[in-house]
């Protein structure tokens, strides 16, 4: 395969469009799940909250304004073809796309330079969190999403050990959702990463929140676990906006990775109902 040259300006434009689009247009998977949930709820408050969320997402899409004021920290999963050559610097091109999306798209700038001491806003929502994987090929695939921190703050990682088995994994996931309760803007999407190392499990959990909720894990054992967890979470009763009801979560997505003989890391990344992600291939 021959080397393919991609202009850095094309990467910038693509990233800009992905961040604007994901903040204005909720995915069909989420919209369909919200509508199904509204029809299934028999409590008036839960029905009313879901109707308002649906109306909110329709306003955002019709008026091309963000569905939530927390337009998130910019997170990207990139599959970078090894035959791609860019006329510039890849990360700079991505950061410029983020900068333009948040500036020209009327998105909120929510990033601070120093996490502990100054906490001064960077004013352009950079730097982004970029996860890059080199793959074979001559294309670049980018999945981008704005991650709000109301739900990010409710996330957790635990180094479960092998003897705890599937039950130990499920207990920790349910415990994390239970502790989050009404805070992360339910109905939520629960992203779970199991295996790898400490940091790989967290990365997989984030990746899981970027997967459509109308898909399932290809391994039937994990697909079954996703289904079982969703049912148990929805029996907790927190409901839409935490005001009670049958819909605490819209989906549970699990991603797994090989791990060490001594370990079974489990990460739970909680995402609000504004589960925003869009994908493009250059």
């Amino acid at each position: 395969m021959e080397t393919r040259v991609i202009k850095s300006s094309e990467i910038t434009e693509t990233v800009k469009r992905l961040f604007m689009d994901c903040n204005y247009f909720i995915g069909d998977d989420i919209m369909n799940a919200l509508k199904n949930a509204r029809d299934k709820e028999d409590n008036d408050t839960a029905k009313s909250v879901l109707s308002q969320i649906i109306e909110n997402d329709e306003i955002a899409s019709n008026e091309q304004i963000p569905m939530c004021q927390d337009t998130g920290m910019a997170v990207l999963f990139v599959e970078y073809g090894d035959k791609v050559c860019i006329d510039g610097d890849f990360e700079s091109a991505v950061e410029e796309g983020v900068r333009r999306a948040y500036d020209e798209g009327y998105l909120r700038k929510s990033v601070v330079f120093d996490p502990v001491f100054d906490r001064i806003n960077t004013k352009d929502n950079t730097p982004a969190i970029i996860h890059t994987k080199i793959v074979s090929g001559d294309k670049i695939k980018i999945t981008a999403g704005g991650k709000g921190f109301g739900s990010e703050n409710m996330s957790a990682v635990k180094m479960v050990t092998p003897s705890y088995g599937a039950e130990g994994v499920k207990d920790f996931i349910l415990e994390t959702v239970k502790n989050a309760g009404p805070n992360p803007c339910p109905p939520i999407v629960v992203g779970v990463g199991i295996g790898g190392t400490f940091e790989r499990s967290a990365q997989l959990a984030k990746k899981a929140t970027f997967r459509s909720i109308d898909t399932e894990n290809p391994d039937p054992r994990y697909a079954e676990m996703e289904k079982e967890l969703l049912e148990k979470i929805n029996k907790m009763g927190f409901g839409p906006a935490g005001l009670g009801g049958k819909t605490t979560a819209l989906g549970v997505n699990i991603e797994v990775s090989p791990t060490h003989i001594a370990g079974m890391p489990v990460a739970v990344n909680i995402c609000c109902h504004a589960a925003r992600h869009k994908t493009a291939v250059i």
């Binding site: 955002a60 008026e63 304004i65 963000p66 569905m67 939530c68 004021q69 927390d70 337009t71 009327y106 998105l107 909120r108 929510s110 109301g150 703050n153 805070n183 992360p184």
Partner: peptide, 22 residues
């Protein structure tokens, strides 16, 4: 408890939902 998104021209305020109170 709110930190709104910027207002588009013609809007009094940008999207402005509540943030977590705790």
């Amino acid at each position: 408890y709110v930190g709104p998104a910027p207002a588009k021209p013609g809007y009094a305020v940008g999207p402005a939902g509540p943030t977590s109170s705790y």
